[in-house]
Nucleic acid binder design. Structure first.
Length: 1139
RNA sequence: GGGCCUGUAGCUCAGUCGGUUAGAGCAUCCCUCUGAUAAGGGGAAGGUCACUAGUUCGAGUCUAGUCAGGCCCA
């Protein structure tokens, strides 16, 4: 048995597909799970990926980390759950389904039918879950995946016939149920596979959470002015708006007059960028501390703040100045006082309880109020207040007991009581409003104004602000003192501080993640969890139409027990709209039938509950205890601090007051190679599938892992090519080298004592320094990589491995080539094979979690071909343990020195312009310190001599011919000693006689210098003697090492150089002729003069090097492969013939 | 407006406790090696360490400010 032949030019991508097939056929993933069942756990909870579109390359980054660390801990001997998750519910799915169906508004959805619409949403989720599953498998992400075809089948059925009864195979046996119920049970123990947040279990578990919030008094219904998307017809929460939600926009800034009621001819000057809100004006606010001016301008009297006078067009005359507080209580005529809405007592909000005891109409209420927040950076210092159209306006109205007018309906149309505006859309009224103001004679100016304005994060529609009622989870007060100083009672009252205590128990990588999460918690408002939409968690809140009482239902059992009507209609369906809405319960206060509020839940509830719902919190507490908390979670940090991380933390704090995860590994943002975000329209986007099939996923994965995670990743094909060239190809070449020669030599590894978990076997016992060096290196990096990965540091591991790979290919293999190539089968050759084999197999296992495909290909050949007892897959082997005995630090240092000397020697040759092929007499090496000199033993010298192609190496102790000296003060010692005088000491030292000082220092004597007329003594330790290469020689030097080469080329050396040249030509010609490495040949040559002489004198050498059996002068026969050459202008014809 | 991060070669980035001549990879040019070659090696060129001021014997490194970019929050 020996290795299979390895192609030098392998198609890595085709190979990846072969390996995918191999894994599938051999059930490699399942076999790996079996191997680790019952071992200590390592719990990873995968954050649900939105199953709404194909995966992007940015998902590939995160999923590579997840797979890497899953595989690492698996190989370390841990049991894992391997459950992927799909995020299924929420507006983002609705928006895409609306697009698919060509819908424009909520009315289209209602006309289509809620039941069908919800099923279309489920269908879309199942289809994209199938796509993402396939893509993840392609990436090599080993998880307990569903069969993508089965997901697609369910997608078809959920639309066609959800009530059809089907049977599917689960891990515990067949499961029979309706399509709707099977879909609702995906990810449950009996079905296995990924979890889906639309599952019944997920939804019911959230009910349990909400009920607990309700019981603690943290859940409330509140009216507030919220950002609102008129297209989606729903409120947008703070979570959704902060980052993605703002866009730079140009709006008209309109300046207008509010004529003062008791001051004829006088007006307040007011400015706004949202003209539609003027319809709902109630008051005007001024800053009490700002200075206001009364001025005459174009024949009228205006008031505005002194810092905003630049708003005026044309000359003005200031008549008086006054503080803002002087304006308080002035009354004015509003711009739309003729509207019915402005004349209704209390105003016109939907929520009548807000104005229950307010009798004034907006019209009556128009007055100047004081507000500290009024500024002068924009506007006129007089702020128009419309409590139904702005969050701060609303707060002021509550404070000042002002009426409120809410002009817009859900979709942004003016409601009744707005006369000519009623039924018009907010986006179409701008010009009409200007015309109205102009007609009334109160419009002063309109000019464009650029500012950042919120838009809907999903559909990019400009948001408006609407007075609505929504449901919130209270975050509790923010106290004006540090967290440590809070009393127990204060903390009890404030959920945010309880979450902070949990956050402190978690390790955040990178560390600033901790501060980010804390910052969010300090600043977070109450969490708005309701959305007036269709597809999502049905909020389990029932309200009484009679008495206004609310009830919160904690789970499906409570619902069934309390159902007073509609249960038959609901039974058999998932707890989604519309069927859940049929269920009515009895009001405990007034016995009326209560209905569910129509709102659905915020999708971060769905994602945040998974550390309970997927870990069987309700059904199997022991299982939950086994897997909770997660040891590790990971996501891209932009966004997740306020989303997934936050919701996980909040929900675990409420339910268990404990951390849901122990370590959080965050990574930055993936950008295109041009440093910009990827955008299809910019042409810089790369689709995941394209990337995978053009780069190969091993390359992608290595690229991802070798990125510093806290820095943005610039992803692209150039970077991928570089990665392939720097990492994958050298790795393959080293492997190809071993296999090529092992096949020629029929070499195979020892089989006694074979352990499938550690298939490279025991450390080879070899005397050769080069072998012992590479064995030390591999074991050194095994230890270091283990430590790095234990700390979630993939980057450091990749750096270590790349350095090692360079050592292996560009030093070990290159230096060892002859040992493999030579014809004797001696102990040295055996050592070389044993060493390279051990190193490669060990490296393959080290790399397996990073690049699972190429390592599998190598393992199959290197291990499985020769060991019948081997595990089927490299991913079934264990993580390598560092053999500390092999890590000979001294040897590592010596080899490093030898490599530096060799490198300098090549530099010296280069500067003399002498080819390496030309042998030279000797190299001279000067080492400045004794410890380095002691490292230069015979073995190291032999390596350097060979590498530099010199006959001998001489260590010189009198370096004076090679170098000149420079004397420097040791700043670290002398700086502190002399302080301000130091520059003079330095100058004196530099001015002194260098040669004498070097002499003194070398002999260990102190130096006396005269500084400012005083004599100071410096000890030898305080002086640094540096050497630099003497000018004009073929010398190269770096810190402490100087290397020179003897450039005299004698006749013998020249002949040898020519012989090597001839050998190289024959070798190239062999290759051109297509001969095999091991083929013996006859070589014919035609040459005369010096070349003929060289061929004769060096015949044995030439024959040995080129596997020439006979070397024959004269015309080659026809069948020979013939080429003409010129060496230094001398012609030579060579003919090769395979025997 | 506040907070955090970043600014080093054409590009992507290292740079430890403040210390002696600021490095790597890629790209460019020259040279070279080669039966693992989609490689490899040596060299050249490329720097106002964003700017300004300060602390210090000494600043890429510490401090303050300015400018630019990014992120988070108002």
């Amino acid at each position: 048995m020996t290795f299979r032949e390895v192609p030098a030019n392998v198609d890595f991508i085709a190979q990846e597909y072969e390996i995918l097939r191999f894994w599938k056929e051999t059930h490699a993933f399942e076999a790996m799970r079996e191997l680790h069942r019952g071992q200590p756990t390592w719990s990873f909870i995968d954050g649900p990926i939105t199953a709404n579109n194909p995966m992007g390359v940015h998902h590939g980054w995160g999923r590579t980390y997840k797979d890497l660390f899953n595989r690492f801990w698996t190989m370390r001997g841990r049991e894992l759950r391997y459950q992927n998750g799909f995020d299924c519910q929420g507006l983002w799915v609705e928006v895409e389904v609306e697009k698919e169906l060509g819908f424009k508004s909520k009315r289209d959805i209602e006309a289509y039918g809620l039941d069908r619409f919800v099923r279309k949403c489920k269908e879309r989720v199942l289809r994209y879950a199938a796509v993402q599953t396939e893509q993840s498998i392609r990436l090599g992400y080993w998880m307990d995946w569903n069969d993508p075809d089965q997901l697609r089948w369910l997608a078809d059925l959920i639309v066609e016939d959800p009530s059809r009864v089907i049977t599917v195979q689960g891990p515990l046996g067949p499961v029979t149920d309706t399509v709707e119920q099977i879909v609702a049970r995906l990810g449950m123990p009996e079905l296995g596979g990924s979890y889906f947040t639309f599952s019944d279990e997920n939804n019911h578990m959230i009910w349990t959470f909400l009920k607990k919030c309700w019981q603690k008094g943290w859940l409330y219904r509140g009216a507030d002015v919220m950002p609102w998307c008129p297209r989606c017809a729903t409120g947008i929460s703070q979570h959704e708006i902060v980052t993605d939600g703002y866009v730079e926009m140009t709006h008209p800034g309109v300046t207008l007059r509010f004529p003062l009621r008791n001051r004829p001819g006088e007006s307040l000057l007011v400015w706004t960028t949202t003209p539609w809100t003027l319809t709902s004006n109630v008051a005007a606010a001024v800053g009490p501390a700002l200075t206001y001016v009364k001025l005459r301008h174009n024949g009228e009297i205006l008031y505005l703040s002194k810092g905003t006078l630049h708003m005026l067009k044309g000359p003005y005359e200031i008549l008086a100045e006054m503080p803002g507080s002087a304006l308080e209580g002035w009354t004015y005529e509003g711009p739309f006082d003729e509207l019915e809405a402005a004349r209704m007592p209390g105003g016109y909000p939907e929520q009548e309880e807000l104005i229950r005891d307010i009798k004034e109409s907006a019209c009556d209420a128009h007055r100047v109020i004081l507000w500290d927040e009024v500024g002068e950076t924009e506007g006129t210092g007089v702020v128009h207040i419309a409590p139904g159209c702005g969050a701060e306006d609303f707060q002021l109205a509550k404070q000042h007991r002002l009426p409120m007018i809410a002009p817009l309906d859900e979709e942004g149309y003016f409601t009744a009581h707005f006369d000519w505006l009623s039924g018009k859309h907010v986006t179409e009224v701008r010009e009409m409003i200007f015309e109205h103001l102009r007609h009334k004679g109160i419009l002063y100016d309109v000019s464009s104004y650029v500012h950042r304005y919120p838009v809907c994060w999903r559909c990019k529609t400009e948001l408006v602000f609407r007075l609505v009622d929504e449901w919130f989870i209270s975050m509790g007060p923010v106290y004006d003192k540090p967290r440590e100083a809070l009393s127990k009672e204060e903390k009890e009252r404030s959920l945010r501080y309880q979450i902070m205590d949990i956050v402190s128990q978690i390790r955040w990588i990178p560390e600033f993640g901790y501060a980010r999460e804390m910052d969010w918690l300090y600043n977070m408002h109450d969490w708005m969890i309701s959305k007036k939409r269709y597809w999502g968690l049905a909020l389990p809140f029932w309200s009484c139409p009679q008495c206004g009482h609310y009830e919160v239902i904690g789970d499906e059992f409570e619902l069934e027990a309390r159902a007073a009507a509609g249960w038959e209609e609901f039974a058999g369906h998932t707890p989604h709209r519309p069927y859940i809405d049929a269920v009515k319960i009895r009001c405990p206060r007034c016995q009326e039938l209560m209905s569910r509020i129509p709102d659905v839940g915020n999708p971060w509830l769905d994602a945040g509950i998974v550390s309970f719902s997927t870990l069987r919190y309700r059904s199997d507490r022991e299982y939950w205890r086994k897997w909770y908390p997660a040891h590790w979670i990971s996501e891209s940090f932009p966004g997740q601090f306020r989303n997934w991380f936050y919701s996980l933390l909040a929900m675990a704090t409420v339910l268990e007051n404990s951390p849901p995860f122990l370590q959080n590994f965050g990574y930055a943002t993936l950008l295109a190679e041009d440093g910009r975000p990827m955008h299809k329209s910019w042409g810089n986007a790369i689709e995941f599938n394209d990337a995978a099939d053009k780069m190969g996923v091993d390359v992608m994965r290595w690229l991802y892992c070798s990125q510093k995670p806290d820095q943005n990743l610039l992803f692209g094909y150039r970077r991928a090519d570089e990665t392939r060239r720097r990492f994958l190809i050298p790795l393959w070449n080293a492997y190809n080298f071993l296999v090529t020669y092992a096949r020629l030599d029929q070499w195979e590894p020892a089989t006694d004592g074979f352990d499938p978990a550690q298939p490279e076997g025991a450390l080879p016992q070899t005397e050769t320094l080069l072998d012992r060096w590479i064995l030390a290196r591999i074991n050194q990096i095994v230890g270091r990589c283990t430590e790095a990965l234990e700390n979630s540091d993939a980057y450091t591991a990749t750096v270590l491995i790349e350095e090692f790979l360079d050592d292996l290919t560009n030093w070990y293999v290159r230096r060892s080539r002859r040992r493999f190539w030579k014809s004797e089968h001696d102990a040295d050759k055996k050592d070389a094979y044993a060493t390279l084999y051990y190193v490669l197999v060990r490296l393959v296992r080290l790399l397996a979690p990073f690049t699972p495909f190429v390592t599998e290909a190598m393992y199959q050949n290197l291990v499985r071909e020769v060991h019948p007892q081997a595990y089927n897959s490299v991913h079934h082997t264990s993580w390598p343990l560092a053999d500390v005995a092999a890590v000979d630090e001294h040897l590592l240092k010596r080899m490093e020195l030898a490599r530096r000397v060799a490198s300098l020697g090549l530099g010296a040759r280069g500067s003399a312009n002498i080819k390496v092929r030309q042998p030279l007499q000797k190299a001279l090496v000067y080492l400045s310190d004794a410890s380095m000199a002691s490292m230069m033993d015979d073995a190291m010298r032999a390596i350097i001599v060979d590498e530099l192609n010199v006959k001998s190496l001489e260590i010189v102790s009198d370096e004076s011919t090679l170098v000149r000296y420079q004397v420097l003060p040791d700043n670290k010692l002398l700086g502190p000693r002399f302080g301000a005088v130091f520059p003079k000491v330095r100058a004196a030292l530099m001015a002194a006689n260098t040669k004498e000082i070097v002499q003194q220092v070398r002999n260990g004597f102190p130096i006396s210098l005269v500084v400012d007329g005083e004599t100071v003594q410096l000890s030898p330790e305080e002086i640094i003697v540096q050497t630099q290469p003497a000018a004009g020689l073929s010398v190269a030097a770096e810190k402490g090492i100087t290397v020179a080469v003897d450039t005299v080329i004698t006749a013998e050396l020249r002949a040898e150089g020519l012989a090597r040249e001839i050998v190289r030509r024959i070798q190239t010609q062999r290759k051109d002729a297509g001969f095999n490495i091991e083929d013996r040949i006859t070589t014919y040559f035609i040459a005369d003069g010096e070349l003929a002489k060289v061929v004769h004198e060096w015949a044995d050498y030439i024959k040995a090097e080129t596997l020439t059996v006979s070397l024959i002068p004269g015309q080659p026969p026809h069948e020979a492969f013939v080429q003409q050459h010129a060496i230094e202008g001398m012609p030579i014809t060579l003919g090769l013939h395979r025997r």
